[in-house]
Design a protein around this nucleic acid. Structure first.
Lengths: 203, 203
DNA sequence: CATTTTGTCTAACAATTGTTAGGCAAAAAT
DNA sequence: ATTTTTGCCTAACAATTGTTAGACAAAATG
């Protein structure tokens, strides 16, 4: 091969691209940027991938699959609603913190997917939300959760867990477990059924 | 003037741009796209604005100013911590729902600001977060809120209110007031001091 | 050893980008 | 009535974009 054998893999390309997509966004990251990050020429990328869109596609659907199989697992094994929700949140936080670059792209850049992929993607995202909704419903049936607006609760929870992507850094002093625990505690406060009213009302 | 006198205003440009920036992102929206949305030629835009960056600048800082003056007002007038937080959330939701396009840009596209503006922007955003943190601190001092992780509570709250931008549509069946009320109720559950333990633990 | 495959390269392309220059007619100011 | 200003236009620019074609040498395969 050319005097430079770098043997870049598709995985490396996706990783480097994810890092750039997170920093500058999909549209503002050029193929030449991605190539430069890997010390190769832009044209060489096409030996490994079909086109730029494929990279975004891979990132978005890989992550979607991760999230979906995690929640499927939680819903399969039996836990009561609170345990289920806590596990679901934990897995979610784990997936995000394991790869902040790719999850940033999953959370923000999916809008740049080509139309057909976008439709599929939104289906998956909806499916994920529905699994969470089911957990909340369980909790209400089990009389453990207050009869809250389900859709609302799910969106509040998901937005909270997703937001960690904005400030989490691997070298920080909190791990996924601690983060998940704190979020769960906070969220559970808003969900749990209260037999006796809060201090606020007692006073 | 040329047989076409359209008298486009800077405000119209910003509005049309915001709509596009929300849909396709800043980088993927061209000056020609913006111009086409206003039925003029791209070059004509430069009669009203300095360059593309200025549009993003205006949107981001206009919104930041709105948010900051709203919370300043809340913190000026005396309310107890819970009232303050509820008012702050209400104003936040109002600002978002009043202009979903511009607030989407404020929430997502600020990353594309040129470096110097970006630094200023982040300062304002931090300032806003700090005002919220002060409210939580007040609540803890007043012994109305649980001694939660302040930073965490603020980020959870803000992520929840910001998320409404993703699904809110003006023609939907919820107004800003109802949305703010629901979020506040949910959030307050996680914050309020609990004298007697929850039903869950009583059982 | 001969051949094919693999992974890079250079060079080039057509399209699109943000932006500027200069023209021209209507409206406003003198 | 004349001049200036305003708000648009067409045309063009240099740079950058995603992508393709084709060469070439190392590695793998026969």
């Amino acid at each position: 091969m050319g005097e430079n054998i770098k043997n870049i893999s598709k995985t490396q390309i996706v990783l480097a691209a994810a890092k750039l997509f997170k920093q500058k966004g999909y549209a503002a990251s050029s193929m030449r940027d991605i190539a430069a990050a890997l010390n190769i020429e832009a044209a060489s990328l096409y030996h490994h991938i079909k086109n730029k869109e494929e990279i975004l596609d891979i990132i978005c659907f890989d992550m979607a699959t991760k999230f979906l199989s995690a929640i499927a697992e939680v819903n399969d094994i039996y836990f009561n609603a609170e345990e289920k929700l806590r596990k679901a949140i934990l897995h979610h936080v784990e997936i995000i913190t394991e790869d902040i670059d790719k999850s940033a792209v999953f959370l923000r850049e999916w809008r740049s997917l080509p139309e057909s992929a976008l439709a599929d993607f939104l289906l998956l995202r909806n499916q994920y939300e529905n699994e969470f909704t089911r957990i909340i419903e369980n909790g209400i049936e089990e009389d453990v959760f207050d009869n809250v607006d389900k859709k609302f609760a799910v969106l509040s929870i998901l937005s909270s867990v997703n937001w960690i992507n904005e400030w989490y850094s691997a070298d920080g002093n909190m791990n996924a477990n601690e983060i998940a625990h704190k979020i769960s505690d906070f969220v559970m406060g808003g969900l749990r059924k209260k037999l006796v009213t809060d201090a606020h009302y007692k006073a």
